[in-house]
Structure formats: C-alpha cells, structure tokens
C-alpha cells in the first residue's frame, strides 16, 4: 500500500510538471529569442550581459521588484525613461538616466525584450505582449 501511494504521488507530480510545461504561453521561447537580440542592441551596454548593471549607475535587472513586479510600471520605464536617481535597490541609488525607448523600439520589440529580461538572469515572470505595450503607449500619449 505504502509503495503504491508513493508511486501515485510521483505520477501526480510528474503530470503536474508536464502540465506546467504545456502551460507555457505559446511563443514564449520565440519571444525570448527575439528579445535577446533587442537586449544586445539596446540594453546590454548599460545593464551588462548578465543583467547585473553597474553599481551606483545602472540598476541590476536580477530579481528586483522593478523587473518582476507590475508589468505596466516596467513597460512605462522603457517607453518614457527615467531622469536617474529614482531607482533604489537595497538602499543604493542608481544615478544614470534611463533613455526613453518610445522612439527607438516598436511595441513588439519592447514586448520581446521585457519578456526576455523577465525570463533571464535567474528571473521567471509572465510574458509581456505587444498588445499590452501598444495599449500603454496609447494611454501615455
């Protein structure tokens, strides 16, 4: 009885994980791949290849509330930029401005790069879609 219980348990867990895999939103892998290219062209210089940023200047993108939290707030930062000094992580401020990307990147590119960042450097978070970026861009106009 004990053994069969264990077997069922293992089976259930395995099924659950398989379910999880299937649950991955369609196109996540492709979005991450496209987002990586955008990241390399538009973000890497300041935020660095491993997302660790630059102390006191450019904030890290690793497991911070800014990256993993509210998607709209994050998307707004990419569209509209920051003056510098607004981001504080563990008591340290980051002084460089974030250049607004609204005139540089389109909705799909912003969605892809945010999906990439939210699923790289040890991060795991939901996708950002082009429709979400488009809606926010219109709202912020």
């Amino acid at each position: 009885m004990k053994r069969s219980m264990l077997l069922v348990l293992v089976l259930f867990i395995a099924t659950a994980f398989a379910f999880q895999q299937k649950q991955q939103p369609a196109g996540l892998k492709a979005a991450i791949a496209r987002g990586k290219t955008v990241y390399e062209n538009a973000c890497l210089a300041c935020h660095q290849p491993d997302g660790s940023g630059v102390p006191n200047m450019n904030p890290p993108l690793i497991k911070t509330k800014w990256v993993l939290g509210d998607k709209k707030a994050l998307t707004k930062i990419v569209l509209k930029g920051l003056q510098g000094g607004e981001i504080e992580i563990d008591g340290d401020k980051y002084h460089n401005p974030m250049p607004p990307q609204e005139s540089v990147l389109n909705d799909q590119e912003i969605a892809d790069v945010l999906t990439y960042v939210r699923n790289s450097f040890g991060n795991k978070a939901s996708m950002v879609t082009a429709a979400e970026v488009k809606a926010l861009r219109a709202k912020l106009k």
Binding site: L9, F12, I13, T15, A16, F17, F19, Q20, Q23, S52, P55, P60, I62, K63, T64, K65, L68, G69, I89, D90, G91, D92, G122, N123, K124, A125, S126
Partner: peptide
C-alpha cells in the same frame, strides 16, 4: 493533490528576492 498544488506554485512568477542584496 497537495503535491500537485505545490508543483504548480513552483512554476509561478517569483516576485520575492532570494539572493542576498547586492552591494
């Protein structure tokens, strides 16, 4: 069922910091 819920929860967004604070 408990195991199933636990496994599902693992796959969710991680919004808590797990690494020691930088700097």
């Amino acid at each position: 069922c408990t195991a199933l819920i636990a496994a599902t929860a693992f796959g969710n967004d991680t919004t808590k910091r797990k690494t020691p604070p930088a700097g």
